[in-house]
Structure formats: structure tokens, C-alpha cells
């Protein structure tokens, strides 16, 4: 199964709607709620990162009986130092993002914690590709 979603930078009203839709799909597929929670927390962190830090993005979700693979591709400023961005507490979030309850610099580390495989590639001035995989059993 494959699903695609669009994400708009700065759109905090709709942030999380893709994650919510994926959650409903996983529930229908009877995926273990504990595994589902890890997947949707990771996806939501990544979705909010596009809204908070990039201009626009695409989410591609691929589900097989064994695993789920999610790739988020955005157009945005990119991440200059990925290692630094992964460190808990590092954040460049704007005041607006902080007002929304985000910007503690914990998202990327939390995505890593909640996924079985994770990969980030980024080009400054172009954008970022984040992909992760979770095994479903």
C-alpha cells in the first residue's frame, strides 16, 4: 500500500493531519497499538519539522505486511550540520514555532528513538530528505 501527503510550511492548523491519517490506516490494519504509537509519533515530529523549518514537503508512506517505510522530502533551507541537529536541545525554531509548543530541539532524537532505521540527507539551500522504517512485528 502507498499513500502520499502534502505539507505546507508554516501551516500549523493542518500540521499533523497526515500523521492522523496514517494512524487511522494502521489501526484499520490491526497493527499493534504500541508499534503504531512509535510510528505516528516519529511521523508527527517529522511533519511538524517541515511545517516549522521548511517551505513545503511531500510524505510518502509505504506499508507492507512486514514493515512501514516513510519518506519526507522537503524544499527548504536544509540542515547544515546534521550531527548537531540530532543533539537534544539544539534548535533554530522561531518564536512562532515555540509559541505553538515546539522548538525544544528534541524532535530528531525522538524520531531516532521511535524508529528501527532512520536516515537524513540534506542540502543547504535546497531541502531535506528524512526516511525511516519500522518493522510491524
Amino acid at each position: 500500500m502507498e499513500f502520499e501527503y502534502k505539507v505546507e510550511g508554516g501551516d500549523f492548523t493542518n500540521a499533523g493531519s497526515a500523521s492522523s491519517s496514517v494512524k487511522k490506516t494502521l489501526k484499520k490494519l490491526n497493527v499493534d497499538p504500541k508499534i503504531t504509537r512509535k510510528i505516528v509519533v516519529a511521523l508527527y515530529e517529522a511533519e511538524v519539522n517541515i511545517v516549522a523549518h521548511a517551505y513545503r514537503g511531500d510524505i510518502l508512506v509505504k506499508i507492507s505486511p512486514e514493515q512501514i517505510n516513510i519518506t519526507l522530502t522537503d524544499e527548504g533551507p536544509g540542515i547544515e550540520n546534521i550531527e548537531q541537529a540530532m543533539v537534544e536541545g539544539y534548535s533554530t525554531a522561531s518564536a512562532k514555532v515555540r509559541e505553538m509548543g515546539f522548538g525544544a530541539g528534541m524532535g530528531l532524537a525522538n524520531i531516532k528513538k521511535n524508529t528501527d532505521q532512520m536516515n537524513i540527507q540534506s542540502e543547504v539551500g535546497k531541502g531535506t530528505v528524512l526516511s525511516f522504517t519500522n518493522f510491524l512485528s
Binding site: F12, G16, S20, K23, V48, M100, G101, F102, A104, K113
Partner: peptide, 30 residues
């Protein structure tokens, strides 16, 4: 801080918060 709430491993929990927006709902949903 929703960033914080998202790192907890919890069950049968309530969130006490002063942050009232759509992302509060999304965070607890996830």
C-alpha cells in the same frame, strides 16, 4: 511543551497544560 509530551512513554494518562491550540490535540492523539 509538546516536544516534551511527545517523548513520554505513557498509558491511561491525562495531560495538564496551559497550551490551548490544535497541536495540543494532535500531540495527545499521537
Amino acid at each position: 511543551l509538546m516536544s516534551d509530551v511527545l517523548t513520554l512513554d505513557t498509558e491511561n494518562a491525562a495531560l495538564i497544560t496551559g497550551l490551548s491550540n490544535i497541536q495540543t490535540i494532535r500531540t495527545v492523539e499521537m
